[in-house]
Design a protein around this nucleic acid. Structure first.
Length: 924
RNA sequence: GCGUCUAUAGCUCAGUUGGUUAGAGCGCUACCUUGACAUGGUAGAGGUCCCCUGUUCGAGUCAGGGUAGACGCACCA
């Protein structure tokens, strides 16, 4: 083995071995355990959020697989309609073309080509991360069988009247030329203006003033509304306005939606371009005048002067024209929420179009109940409040998109405007009795990407066919995802899965935090703070990183800023930390908080942890590889330390399993780290040296310790494997044979059982023995450290006031004490025997004394004692204060009181000892 | 407006139903190249648990109020 852990030299061969072993597929034995991978965009690449979630999922999958479950990780990718179409469209634009130049068929062909070209990126990256899904079942949302499920669901919902087509106001993205759902619109507060415009009364008797943030929409005004109780305007209700610039007559109507307090109390009503106005328009049967094209340019229904103008140019022109007519009363600065498309950033235009909708109310009810009843459980639990809040106010879902990439809507139109929904055109013809000479054309639109994603839990299992997988793996065990897609995806999966299978899609929903940068900022290309997980695994040169972060920036000055910041943060580039270190970092950071600030120092720390594991293994192998480990029999005599590490490993195993059952990966990681470093390496390995290097030790003793060394290491590798698959398998390959396992050629740790529970190994007395040993050694080291005694200087120590058990322990562990404490001798003082002036460490009632002669400065030891006494007196004061409180003694549970009493006694005994010591030393 | 979350060591974070002397990693200080490991070892320093009030024998933990910040939903033209 190399002296330093080198992740790159081991990762590739491991993954090959795993894939070849066939363990990724469900075993067919044991209780089913299934995780559905939230399908990433097929043409996307792995970002930190993926790497985080995939680590969690893989850890669960590997753990459950080792626990003997019939384990399936269903993998696949999403066609991601808008995102993918935009990527390919941008490529076309770069060549001076648009998708319209190609036409639909050729454009879609181009997207498939792009998918073929880049579709393997993310799955390749998942392999680098060590994930172990069943690749043989990998699906794509536009595969034939998934598309079939999509059609089936659409048709069935339509038959039940739960999918309908309607002309309504939708969120229109004028850049993409498509409707988007409410969820795809982000409302950000921006600075704008409130224009106060004079609207003349038709009878020439005066004017009203209306306030608006969007003056250009006046071209589509069909009324002015006031509050029915508004004294100022009551007499005007029913009269007419002569709409400036258009010269149309529009009524003044009364509606209590109007807020008397806001603006002038008069509202211009544009039913075709505002959601509230639309509702009011319907209430009052107002005409709806659409004044924009799909590009959000003024259309031919508007006055000629503005036709063809962009909506924002039209705004300027209209304000100028009104001003020229003296119709602008005033312009105020105003903060308003501007709706923008989450993909394009374009201002969304409420736009009157024909779209398909899902009526969600009846679907939402059982989906709410599934969570209320506890059948589905959010982890952490409070996310169910977010879920309820949205589900109780859920609106019908606009599912049609005017895109070319996606599942085509299974609806056909004849030339008379009739619409027929069916699985295929021929089914439609047959069902409707339409002759072959009736011309039908299919709906041009595609479905919202999330429509197919909503079917993921059952469509991936073969639905609408009744398959064994559907039987076995629905409901799946846990969904691991981010809170950002609870509405987009999680809620819709629950609705659709309940509707079409009667089952819940998953039992637990583990909601992960969002990975942010070290300052708590969201990682984004435009901020230039994105970390690529693969760069943390393989490392990256500074210049390459700078180039990567600044490539394709829209603004050159931003690129400069980002380059500067990157150079400052990573002057040496990024080291290659390896997959295991990265995965362990993610696990350790997976606490219950909703934001996770990614700290590079953690990765480095866990890379060091990998190195520690590596070197501990080197030590074990060096001492066992060419020696008798008892694998073939022979008497085994275990030392106290051997028994102790076996007990401690058992306790750790239990702690880790408890943490994993609670999805507390941070706690599990903590236990793994603590045991490996602070117990196994710091103490146990040191405690084996006195046995292995002791010429007086018997063969049975040496064999016993070697046997324990290899077996604990072998178990430790299995314990850590779910989090750190590569390093553990690599080491396991070497250590398992020393434990007597005959390895097949393709053997891998991932096919091994998890560490078994053996309660009888947990021997509390042994644990107490080693605890005592540690206290003695730490006591000596402490005095060495504080008194500046060289760690190499052998010491003669005295044990004073040693009880029978202290004496027994001294006897049993003498070799450990002397080796680890670097002691020349240990002398037990008899009762009443005078001790020379010494520095003192307290272990229970016993004192460990290091004679000062020639070693220890009087004043230094006095200072050390004073410091300890100071702390003790504060402790005693606090505890005694509590015990003196009658109410405490009367009310607190007996166990608590007993504990406080014991504490008090312990403190006081320590205090007496130290005071006596102080006196002796002071009198020198 | 409604709702959710966060505030603990210089930094990043743990701290289960109230009950040890509030912990870890990183960073910091001193010493140590000792035959697994300097990506290491030993020892150490470092905390007004955001503030106020309350409940309680007892509050980092519970309740109320406040301050600062993050997020979701719905919004007045």
């Amino acid at each position: 083995m190399e002296k330093t852990f080198d992740p790159q030299s081991i990762e590739q061969t491991c993954y090959q071995r795993w894939e070849n072993s066939g363990h990724f597929a469900a075993s067919g034995k044991g209780d089913p355990y299934c995780i559905l991978l939230p399908p990433p965009n097929v043409t996307g690449s792995l970002h930190m959020g993926h790497a985080f979630q995939h680590t969690i999922m893989d850890a669960l999958i590997r753990y459950k697989r080792m626990k003997g479950n019939n384990t399936l990780w269903q993998v696949g990718t999403d066609h991601a309609g808008i995102a993918t179409q935009m990527v390919v469209e941008r490529q076309l634009n770069a060549q001076g073309q648009t998708r319209h130049d190609l036409g639909r068929d050729d454009f879609v062909k181009k997207i498939w080509e792009w998918k073929a070209h880049s579709g393997g990126t993310i799955t390749g990256q998942m392999r680098r991360l060590g994930t172990s899904p069943d690749w043989s079942r990998e699906v794509f949302t536009m595969d034939d069988n998934l598309s079939e499920a999509v059609t089936e669901v659409f048709v069935k919902l339509h038959e039940e009247g739960l999918i309908y087509r309607g002309k309504r106001l939708v969120n229109w993205d004028p850049v993409l030329h498509t409707a988007v759902s409410d969820l795809e619109v982000v409302n950000e507060e921006e600075s704008g203006h409130l224009w106060h415009m004079r609207y003349p009364l038709a009878d020439g008797s005066g004017h009203l003033v209306v306030a608006t943030t969007r003056p250009e929409t006046m071209l589509g005004d069909t009324a002015v509304a006031v509050h029915p109780d508004d004294e100022r305007y009551r007499s005007l209700i029913g009269k007419e306005i002569k709409l400036p610039l258009s010269d149309r007559l529009i009524p003044i109507i009364a509606d209590d939606y109007v807020d008397l307090e806001f603006g002038t109390g008069c509202v211009k009503i544009t039913p075709a371009h505002d959601f509230n106005d639309y509702e009011m328009g319907k209430r009052h049967s107002l005409p709806m005048i659409n004044i924009f094209t799909a590009d959000a340019k003024v259309n031919d229904d508007a006055p000629e002067a503005y036709r063809g103008m962009d909506r924002f140019d039209a705004r300027k022109q209209i304000v100028a024209d009104l001003d020229a007519l003296g119709l602008i009363e005033k312009i105020d600065d105003h903060k308003l929420k501007v709706p923008r498309g989450d993909r394009t950033g374009a201002v969304i235009e409420p736009y009157l179009t024909d779209q398909w909708y899902v009526a969600v109310e009846s679907l939402a009810k059982p989906a709410i109940e599934a969570v209320e009843s506890g059948e589905i459980r959010f982890v952490p639990e409070n996310w169910n409040k977010t879920y309820y809040q949205w589900m109780h106010n859920i609106q019908d879902w606009c599912i049609s998109r005017q895109l070319w990439w996606g599942h085509r809507i299974p609806a056909w139109y004849d030339n008379n405007g009739n619409v027929y929904v069916g699985r295929t055109e021929s089914e439609v013809r047959e069902k409707q009795g339409l002759a072959n000479d009736v011309v039908l054309h299919q709906d041009e639109d595609v479905l919202d990407t999330w429509f197919s994603s909503a079917l993921w839990p059952f469509a991936t299992m073969g639905w609408p066919k009744q398959t064994p997988e559907l039987e076995t793996f629905l409901p799946s065990s846990v969904l691991v995802t981010g809170f950002d897609i609870i509405f987009f995806w999680v809620a819709r999966m629950i609705m659709m899965t309940k509707k079409f299978t009667g089952q819940i899609p998953f039992k637990d929903i583990y909601i992960t935090g969002l990975i942010r940068d070290e300052n708590g900022d969201k990682m984004s290309k435009s901020k230039g703070n994105v970390l690529d997980p693969i760069d943390l695994i393989d490392g990256i040169e500074l210049e390459t990183l700078v180039e990567k972060r600044t490539a394709g920036m829209m603004q050159p000055q931003m690129a400069e800023k980002i380059a500067k910041r990157t150079r400052k943060q990573f002057p040496e580039g990024i080291n290659a930390y390896g997959t295991d270190a990265l995965r362990f970092t993610f696990a350790a950071m997976a606490s219950t908080s909703r934001d996770i600030n990614f700290d590079m120092a953690r990765v480095e720390g866990y890379r060091n942890f990998c190195n520690k594991i590596w070197n501990a293994s080197r030590f074990v192998l060096m001492n066992t590889q060419d020696a008798d480990t008892g694998a073939k029999g022979g008497e085994l005599q275990l030392s106290v330390a051997d028994k102790w590490i076996l007990a401690t490993l058992q306790k750790t195993r239990a702690d880790i399993e408890t943490a994993l059952a609670d999805y507390r990966f941070d706690i599990a990681a903590q236990h793994m780290y603590e045991f490996t470093w602070n117990q196994f390496c710091d103490w146990y390995l040191e405690l084996t040296k006195p046995v292995l290097n002791n010429e007086d030790a018997t063969d049975a003793q040496k064999r016993g310790t070697r046997h324990t060394l290899v077996n604990v290491l072998e178990q430790l590798m299995r314990l850590l494997h779910p989090f750190m698959p590569f390093i553990t398998d690599t080491i396991w390959q070497q250590v398992a044979p020393l434990c007597g396992h005959a390895l097949e050629a393709d053997a891998t740790i991932m096919g091994q059982p998890f560490v078994e529970e053996v309660p009888e190994l947990i021997d509390e007395e042994i644990i107490a023995d080693i605890d005592w040993l540690k206290k003695c050694i730490v006591g000596v080291r402490n005095i060495r450290g504080e008194m500046d005694i060289s760690p190499n200087k052998p010491l003669n120590v005295l044990f004073k006031n040693a009880s029978a058990s202290d004496q027994r322990r001294t006897q049993d562990m003498q070799v450990f004490l002397t080796r680890l404490g670097k002691l020349e001798s240990i002398t037990q003082l008899a009762d009443g025997e005078e001790a020379p002036p010494s520095a003192t460490a307290i272990v229970g009632d016993m004192e460990v004394l290091i004679p000062m002669a020639g070693l220890i400065d009087k004043d230094a030891e006095l200072a050390r004692i004073d410091k300890a006494l100071d702390k003790l007196s504060k402790d005693i004061q606090r505890v005694e204060g509590k015990l003196a409180n009658e109410k405490f003694v009367a009310n607190a549970p007996d166990a608590v009181i007993a504990k406080e009493r014991a504490k008090s006694e312990d403190f006081q005994s320590q205090q007496r000892t130290l005071m006596a010591q102080r006196e002796t030393i002071a009198s020198l």
